[in-house]
Design a protein around this nucleic acid. Structure first.
Lengths: 232, 232
DNA sequence: CGTATAATTGATATTACTCAATAACAGTGG
DNA sequence: CCACTGTTATTGAGTAATATCAATTATACG
């Protein structure tokens, strides 16, 4: 399917939004929309022809797999996010859809050419890359030093923020985008520990669980306190 | 002090190496060399006027400090590495010299202008940023899932590679750029655990300790095996 | 040489993991 | 609609790993 930038929900926020209409149309010639169902893979670690993509809707996980077959989630991608390593000869990580997801996919070659042809695009991607770097470092900080409770509290807080319309105030109620197992492996914990700590957070009155994946933030300040971040 | 690119040891490897002589000289007008002694700070988290810099010689650590005053090392910078967040209004992390270090420092404004004026520079920084992202994700992978032994083994292996001239083969003998405390906080461990595990690695014949910071790799393959990476 | 800092070593406590069983739930086909 | 099956989540008991606390030893520095 060809790209229809006119009606694209992320046309004003994705990297390509910095292009002029004409430039964007030229880039769109090289791209294709692609829809991934939950669990489908965009590309796998080691793929030489791994494409680049902008996420239009849905959510992706970027994950590494060690030689024992254990998966580790390194990052999540949200709409308007950019995926792909233009400069690496092959993909370092797997990219998998968490929910049904719509993407604009570009062959690596074409994206390389595009950043040569459109300096503004290169700058936009640089900005995004630095933001990704920052969020990966935040996750690293959490994972290395926090207790299981702190990691979980911080993750819930992040998800609440991501689920909210306004970027500053967290949503009061939201659905977890990840299963217990995915949460566990993102935070370097086990499923059992995640389950137990969620229970403890509920007992302590910080959250309330609504079904399997629904979370209501009862006491966001307490959650924030547990997560070890600056208070505000 | 003004920049003397002609004799710069990283003139062929740093981001600025993609510029023509003329462009590079123009950029050099805006820059200054700066020498940091061990422990000196380039800038602190929260600084609004945090500069950008290319590391010429020495080594830096990028670290976060939580509200209890605990420091966490998120990344190291080696010669030809680029430091600085051009797009953030203030620095997110502290940057501190691990050893006496020489840098080319550029005001953020000038660097922003440079990436507008020189598209090749923006692309070079994009490439670097993606590499940094990848190494941060590697550290995350390690920290989240590995045992204390695996983390330490992987770190030693990384240092051995960084210390070597040839990028593929690790150096057989090298000096640790970090104190025990710094290693501990980079890996999310305690000083005591690092000390004990180093002892065990020595007992098991993987390494030999030469003084406080010297390390000799006796059995690199075994170390690599412990670190949980693919064997080769 | 004496003092401060960094590293090692030991004993104990805590946390999260492992293994195992049970429970909730979703999807499927009768 | 309900039983059946596989998946995901919860809960419990015991264990292993690492943190913590405390003491000692090495090293560096003035």
């Amino acid at each position: 399917m060809n790209l229809t930038c006119e009606t694209c929900p992320v046309r004003d926020s994705a990297a390509c939004s910095v292009l002029s209409d004409k430039e964007r149309d030229a880039l769109a010639q090289a791209g294709r929309t692609r829809v991934l169902k939950r669990g489908e893979m965009l590309f796998a670690a080691g793929d030489e022809d791994a494409a680049c993509a902008t996420l239009v809707s849905g959510a992706l996980k970027i994950c590494a797999t060690d030689r024992d077959g254990n998966e580790q989630i390194l990052a999540l991608a949200h709409p308007s996010g950019f995926i792909g390593e233009m400069f690496a000869p092959f993909a370092h990580h797997d990219v998998v859809a968490l929910t049904e997801s719509r993407l604009c996919v570009f062959p690596k070659r074409d994206m390389q050419r595009a950043i040569e042809d459109y300096p503004a695009l290169a700058r936009a991607l640089l900005r995004r890359s630095q933001e990704d770097l920052h969020s990966t470092r935040s996750l690293l900080e959490l994972t290395a030093h926090g207790s299981a409770e702190a990691r979980l509290a911080a993750l819930l807080h992040d998800f609440a923020r991501a689920a909210s319309d306004s970027p500053c105030h967290p949503a009061q109620e939201f659905e977890l985008p990840l299963s217990r197992g995915e949460i566990a492996n993102m935070l370097g914990l086990t499923i059992e520990t995640v389950s137990r700590k969620l229970g403890e957070l509920e007992d302590s009155g910080a959250i309330r669980r609504k079904g399997k994946r629904g979370i209501e933030l009862v006491d966001p300040a307490y959650l924030r306190m547990l997560s070890g971040k600056e208070e505000d």
